[in-house]
Simulated scan of single mutants.
Amino acid sequence: MKTLKEAKPGETVVVARVNGKGALRRRIMDMGITKGTQLFIRKIAPLGDPVEINVRGYELSLRKMEAESIELV
């Protein structure tokens, strides 16, 4: 499976599942990133951290570590 970290700017992707445990997983899900959610990859910083996405009508920046825990369809 492809992760959010591997997605390219300009792509629209769908979340397959959120990996991770405890507070990290809960935090990602609280931000609206759940199974079946569409994400638009706005831009990625030159070194890959952070990743800026558009989710459920708002813009969100995620660190590489957080992006690795989000699997895409």
Rank of each mutant, 00 (worst) to 15 (best):
V73F: 14
R42Q: 12
P50A: 09
M29N: 04
G57V: 02
R25D: 02
L39A: 10
G57H: 09
T3A: 04
V55H: 04
T3V: 06
K2N: 11
T12E: 14
A23D: 14
G22R: 03
G32F: 01
L47H: 14
M1Q: 11
R42T: 12
A7F: 04
K2A: 07
F40N: 11
V13K: 10
E59Q: 07
T12P: 07
V13G: 04
E59M: 08
E11Y: 07
I44C: 01
I44L: 11
G10R: 04
R27C: 03
R26K: 14
G20T: 05
K21D: 10
A67P: 00
I33V: 05
V51D: 02
T34P: 01
E52L: 15
S61I: 03
G36V: 06
I70T: 02
A45P: 03
K21W: 13
I44N: 06
G22P: 03
P9A: 08
L24W: 03
R17F: 09
L62S: 00
Y58Q: 14
A16S: 09
M1G: 15
L4Y: 08
N54F: 12
T34F: 12
A23T: 12
K43D: 13
V51W: 08
T3Y: 02
D30F: 09
R56K: 14
P50V: 07
G48Q: 10
E59I: 09
P46M: 05
G10A: 07
L39H: 09
K8F: 08
D30K: 14
L24K: 13
I41F: 12
D49A: 09
V51F: 11
V18D: 01
F40Q: 15
V18N: 02
G22T: 05
Q38K: 14
L72G: 10
D30E: 15
R26I: 10
D49K: 01
A7R: 13
V14P: 01
Y58P: 01
A67T: 01
I28G: 00
L72N: 09
L62A: 00
E59S: 09
N54D: 13
P46S: 11
E59L: 04
I33S: 00
A45D: 08
G57F: 07
P9W: 03
I44A: 04
G36I: 09
V55M: 03
G20E: 13
R27I: 05
T12N: 08
I41C: 03
E6G: 03
L4H: 06
T37D: 08
A16Q: 13
S61Y: 04
E68M: 07
K35F: 09
M29D: 05
L47N: 12
L62I: 06
V55K: 03
K5N: 11
I41N: 02
K43H: 14
V73D: 15
V13Y: 11
R56Y: 02
A23L: 11
E68W: 00
E6S: 10
G48K: 06
E6A: 13
E66A: 04
R26F: 09
V51Q: 05
V15T: 06
A45I: 01
T37M: 06
P46L: 04
M1E: 13
M1D: 13
L60D: 00
A7W: 05
E11G: 02
V51H: 11
L60V: 01
V18F: 12
P50D: 04
R56G: 02
R56T: 05
R25C: 08
A23P: 05
N19G: 13
P46T: 06
E11A: 08
K2G: 06
E71F: 12
L47C: 05
R27K: 10
E6D: 15
I53F: 07
D30T: 09
E52K: 15
